[in-house]
Write a protein that binds this DNA or RNA. Structure first.
Lengths: 218, 218
DNA sequence: TAGATTGTTAATCGATTAACAATC
DNA sequence: TAGATTGTTAATCGATTAACAATC
């Protein structure tokens, strides 16, 4: 829970994966796990796992390992999954609707309040239980409800301008699906980018590299 | 183009971002750029950019910088964006349809051949110009058309089993949206995971950390 | 030629791994 | 107590940054 110095970015990005694996272990009925066993399961080293957990004070017990319930609890607390943060979604196109219909926001620590779109055909409709409201009412909604973060599933070009506007009105984090770099880090507003094209290009490259390797081994 | 030793994972993951920025510069009408200017634009150091490019032989010119057309060409070649790879998509639910309708697969190096789903209501429909076929015809299609990679937008639980089947039938890469770890690296089959829940949890954590920092600075 | 900027080597920094004493 | 496994320090490894000679 306590953040001693600054925890490195590498550690922070492993936290969700730890959490996911611990949840799976719990679902499998396990009660405890050693760093060694968890390392094997996740393809890491036991040393790294102990180092990582000790960034937050260490919640194991010598000779026993880590209690799964406690670990889940602690990791959830570190990431703030139970702090009841709120989110709005901007852009109820195909991707936006896919998230509204399928994605479990609360499992990742957010209550999704509603969505906004400029298309009159969509306004008033509900997807996955979430209402789509008129973009004209966005500013007022933010002032009244003070959502913590915004999900950007709007067209690329609009993204930087809209992002700046949101931040000015008090939004404190962005989940950015637009593929556009928003350059807001300087303002202390974290942005998580889901760059789908980067991800697929990386796959393209890796497939090529794997093919080459296969040829060499012939 | 030549891969001297092994290029580090860190470098490979920066390639798509370089490519994206170079494409933007080209669209802005630029003809050349120095490592210094590109570093400022991207928030990196000039040194790192020169090191990265030199993993692939270095394609700059002293006293001039890097030619944008050449850089785009070379980066595209390194990632194999022009090698005409093919893809199929499994699972035409909301997320699958969002990709079919909106995502530009060819810009990331792949021709999307078609989609597959088990739902009779969807079979025969087209999204973004891509036909949805019956899952029953999947095996035959793979044998005839030998697609390079598969996009997994199927439900979580089915993923590991289906992934194994695909690999056995010759699929050589996976773009995995299921949130499930597939454990195929040992087989030499690259997997790019789009873990949306990990990404949002990370945002949750970063928002909390930024809030704390703000409080301290008061 | 003089100025600019690369390619490349050396120095620094940070993250991962190994080792082991502490302790349940 | 003996065995197991953590927390933590030290050693290693890799990636980033700095420096500078090469050269356009």
């Amino acid at each position: 829970m306590e953040r001693k110095q600054e925890v490195s970015k590498a550690v922070i990005q492993r936290l969700p994966r730890y959490y996911r694996n611990i949840c799976e272990l719990k679902a499998e009925g396990e009660q405890r796990i050693s760093s060694k066993a968890l390392a094997e399961r996740m393809g890491l080293t036991a040393s790294q796992i102990r180092q990582d957990f000790n960034c937050f004070g260490g919640f194991g017990q010598q000779g026993y390992g880590y209690n799964i319930d406690k670990l889940q609890e602690e990791l959830g607390a570190i990431m703030g999954l139970r702090t009841g943060r709120t989110a709005i979604l901007l852009g109820a196109g195909n991707l936006g609707r896919a998230l509204l219909n399928n994605f479990n926001f609360s499992a990742s620590g957010f209550e999704l309040l509603c969505a906004f779109d400029a298309n009159p055909q969509l306004i008033g409709q509900r997807f996955g239980g979430h209402e789509v409201r008129s973009a004209d009412t966005l500013v007022e909604f933010i002032e009244c409800n003070k959502p913590d973060v915004a999900v950007l599933t709007i067209p690329r070009g609009d993204a930087p301008r809209i992002a700046r506007g949101l931040v000015e009105r008090g939004i404190r984090g962005l989940w950015n699906f637009t593929g556009e770099d928003l350059h807001l880090e300087g303002l202390g507003v974290p942005v998580e980018n889901v760059h789908l094209s980067d991800s697929l290009m990386t796959l393209c490259h890796l497939v090529g590299a794997a093919d080459e390797k296969r040829e060499q081994n012939l």
